[in-house]
Design a protein around this nucleic acid. Structure first.
Lengths: 232, 232
DNA sequence: CACAACTCTCAGGTGGCTCTCAGCAGAGGC
DNA sequence: GCCTCTGCTGAGAGCCACCTGAGAGTTGTG
């Protein structure tokens, strides 16, 4: 975490709610974050502050995100970009993005997914930056690169939502997370339903992860859920 | 990757988009890349920087690519060249190129094909450069030199696109690749369609590659495709 | 010029994933 | 022990990602 203290990230979105949401989440992860609302401001901010990564909305009021990237390129800046796009804008204009270490995420996204992408990009561009590809607790392990999930060496198949939920619990192993926290991190930020969906997905996970072996997914009544060994 | 860190490549194209595309892709592979937009600039850059390989557009505003090559030869430079040509130009003038360690690629090309050619040339000219001609996973193997594809020893016939797609999955075995990534790397850079073509070609590949034996080409719903043994 | 190979589009069908809901079980308070 | 509240889980609806066969258009070849 402390290695991350010097890592500057610029977040560019004209919706203050989204910019705040993303900035807050990234600051909590230990990054230094600044926000901009316009393409023009983004170009200036990159010049001034020289961030290691830009989170960039494609739909901006003045210059669109792709133009901002080209501007940065022609400036000779090699800063990698994580684009935020609407679902229907994606297919056609995203071509070529994944070549240079850039990536994209469709709105609405989940915070945990955003953080995971940010980490993945920084891992590629700053290899010395310590942020492990493998996360494990007891006999449960996740490989971020291959999306492999293993319990005692045996491979487990998870759906996307199940995977993000388990990763969230694993990263916060031994810490009780409330249903509200889980909803905020794992589900898309515009999710309208209530916390009962978390119960459902916990149930799915238990069937797959805790099927054999000690149960690692624990309920803490009226508080939330933890990933923890019963005797730990 | 680290052996490649000292390998300098010069990219010469007067269209900035193409030069950027190629440079970005090669940098991502770990090469040191510089770009030039003119034949004259290319000759100077080769003198100054002494690259191990030149990627050279045949159609340049001032001196054409072949003339640049002759100029380099008469300078006593033995640097190998990968020519980029339009489909309808100069099929005849390109013949005989492969004798000198050179090669060519017709525009529009796919990034993965370009990278493969670059690797092949460097393999020939810098034999110590570690980059295997054979790539294999489980009982599936391909030979880059002969374009042989074998499953459990049995030869498999693939169309050009099928081959590039399979090679991409094979190089990234056990890693889930999104349709966007596949499109960016495997299809020609000017392809206008959407990701459904990937589904079609995955279907073709399955019929040929996974016809007998365990299915290696796996769908990860809402994420992408992987080449992976089911129990691995 | 006919034929074969290849690329790409499209539409119908299928199944996986997400989410809702209701009934049940277990924990904790009294 | 009884009651209430919280959480668990099976069933199922709806959506949409994906699969595949058919065919059109193009290019290469004998």
């Amino acid at each position: 975490m402390s290695e991350r203290a010097g890592t500057r990230i610029l977040v560019v979105d004209d919706e203050p709610n989204i910019a705040d949401l993303v900035a807050t989440a990234l600051r909590y992860e230990g990054f230094e974050v600044e926000t901009e609302a316009t393409g023009r401001g983004a170009v200036d901010a990159v010049r001034d502050r020289n961030p290691q990564l830009v989170v960039l909305d494609v739909m901006l009021p003045d210059v669109d995100g792709f133009a901002v990237q080209e501007r940065l390129r022609s400036d000779g800046r090699r800063v990698p970009v994580l684009f935020l796009t609407a679902r229907d804008t994606v297919e056609d204009r995203v071509r070529g993005l994944t070549l240079g270490g850039d990536d994209y995420l469709t709105k609405p996204f989940s915070i945990d997914e955003l953080v995971a992408r940010v980490r993945a990009i920084l891992r590629r561009t700053q290899p010395h930056e310590a942020s492990p590809e493998r996360i494990s607790y007891f006999d449960l392990e996740i490989d971020e690169a291959t999306r492999d999930v293993r319990r005692a060496g045996r491979r487990i198949d998870l759906s996307p939502t199940e995977y993000v939920l388990l990763r969230y619990l694993l990263v916060n192993a031994r810490r009780v997370m409330s249903k509200a926290q889980i909803l905020d991190h794992v589900w898309q930020y515009d999710f309208g339903g209530d916390g009962r969906i978390v119960e459902t997905y916990i149930s799915y996970l238990r069937k797959k992860v805790d099927a054999d072996g000690v149960p690692l997914i624990q309920t803490v009544r009226r508080v939330g859920y933890v990933l923890r060994h019963p005797e730990d």
